[in-house]
Amino acid sequence: MLKSHLAAQLLNLLAAGLLLISFAMLSRRRTQRLITLFAWQGSILFLSTCLVAYDASLTELYYSAALTLIMKVITLPWILHRLMRRLGAQWDSEPLVNIPATMLVGLVLVIFAFGLAEPISMLATTITRHTIGIALAVILLSFLMMITRRKAVTVVIGFLAMENGLFFAATSATYGMPMVIELGIALDLLVAVFILGIFFFQIHEQFDSLDLHHLETLRED
């Protein structure tokens, strides 16, 4: 149980911040900004996990908070930044058409997610359960971002952000997953980023660009 009303409010605030960052990600053109935003998202996640851990007095949650901090705030952004530099793509930006329309779709997704989470949050026992809607919205928005992007790096960032949403859902609905699973996921992510990094190099070598629409030419006619 949450000890105080204040903690619940703070958590809501953090959840709102998470949602805000997801929308900011949808609208940013510069890839490097996206990485920064991703790091910010990770730090909010870290704070919220700490808050829940403090409030529910769960020591394991502190570990997963620390894991979040190391992985999502420090390691992954660092790897991504390095990758961008190595690929010479740090000034990349994407020609996004019609941001307001994407935003509007995002808004509808949020409404959808909230509506969907309503019955689930009734089932959940924790007080933090109302943030499930936001977690779901973050997942859907990251998915939307992956759909609208054309660069390999940004698609990967979308993928990572989606995982952030999942993690947030886990902490808010059930006070986190068992440690083993969390460690496994963290390791998976790391490996995924490494593999995808190798893919970036391959794509870059092949097409001299990270633009995914080049992959369309690989199709056999």
């Binding site: 009303h5 619940a8 409010q9 809501n12 959840a15 709102a16 949602l19 805000l20 929308f23 609208s27 941001i99 307001p100 935003m103 509007l104 995002g106 808004l107 949020v110 409404i111 909230f114 949050s121 109302h130 943030t131 809607g133 936001i134």
Partner: peptide, 22 residues
């Protein structure tokens, strides 16, 4: 301005969900 509008609507949605719940 679409961003401004969106932020305001998001605030509204967040309020409807979180505000009611608290």
């Amino acid at each position: 301005l679409a961003m401004a509008f969106l932020l305001a609507v998001l605030g509204l949605l967040v309020h409807l969900l979180l505000g009611v719940s608290t």
